[in-house]
Amino acid sequence: MRVCAVIPCFQEELRSSALEVLTKATIVASSSGGRVEAWLVGPTAEKHSSKAAQYGAATLRVMELEVDSEAKGVNVSLGRRIVDAVDELMTQSTAELATEGAPQPPSLLLFDNTELTKDVLGACGARLDVPVIADVVDLSWDGHQCIAQRPTYASKVMSKVHAEGSVILCSIRAGLFEPDEKPVKATTHRYKSPQTDLLGQVLKELVAPEGDTVDLTEAPIIIGVGRGIADETGKDLVAKLATLIRGEIAISRAHFESGMYSHTLLVGQSGKVVAPRLYLALGISGSIQHVAGMSESHTIIAINKDPEAPIFDLADLGIVGDLYQILPALIHALESTQA
């Protein structure tokens, strides 16, 4: 039995979501008696393999993938490259394990839940013709049956999903637990990447507007900016505050319409799902679609002038008042402590 953390490697740094997946893989493996493998695919696969061993993977399967020339250093790839890679690794590793005299081992493949994974997970499942469970917050596996918990109905309901088969794919929601170092001695297997037919598809251009270099799912402090921040004055206040408390800025959908911020920063059902140490919600009402993306945050502090705003139902600390008065005073207080 093996639990395989599938890790796309397109960046210089290994993403913390990848380490979380490895940690989850070691937990599932130790309770099911399986071995942990890391499948590292991408241009920086070789580079990150030692880190995977540090986080518990005893078998490292490394496949250097071609990168689209536009997409150096970012978590971007045309999806087919990754689907072909996973397919190839499955075929090759199964064949190897069979020649080692073992019957084909049951395999649980764990992915993170980035946009890159979301782009390929369904296609991987169809290609391998195996069950897939997406966006899981917890799971158990006994080599045949997988029982997973996943939030549904805009994260208002927990759904317990059952799948069985010799191969099962799951993606794991990010930010839910601490990556845990567990160094092991690992053996490395290297694979040649398959020739991917991109079917005429071309990655033309990466558009990375201001602010787009941050990866919200990795940020410990997030400042969520809602409609209550309505103009450049407000935006400047938020920027100052962000520097002072080492926060990254996220937005509600209200700022899709305002055009004040980059769309990459959207948090919620149709944006990113985050679980930072602190989510500071500024002028966000707390619509269920927004809350779906941040309700797992460790601490939530909300500032809103409406004492009835639904965001206060989930905030650990709620501050009732006008942002345009509170933020300048708060910034002043922060500056005087840091001076």
């Binding site: 005429g200 598809q201 071309v202 270099t213 990459t264």
Partner: peptide, 16 residues
């Protein structure tokens, strides 16, 4: 020509 929202950038992808 599709502009997709990725993890930390937007990608223009062209498909026949």
């Amino acid at each position: 020509w599709v502009k997709r929202q990725g993890d930390s950038a937007q990608e223009w992808i062209d498909s026949p």
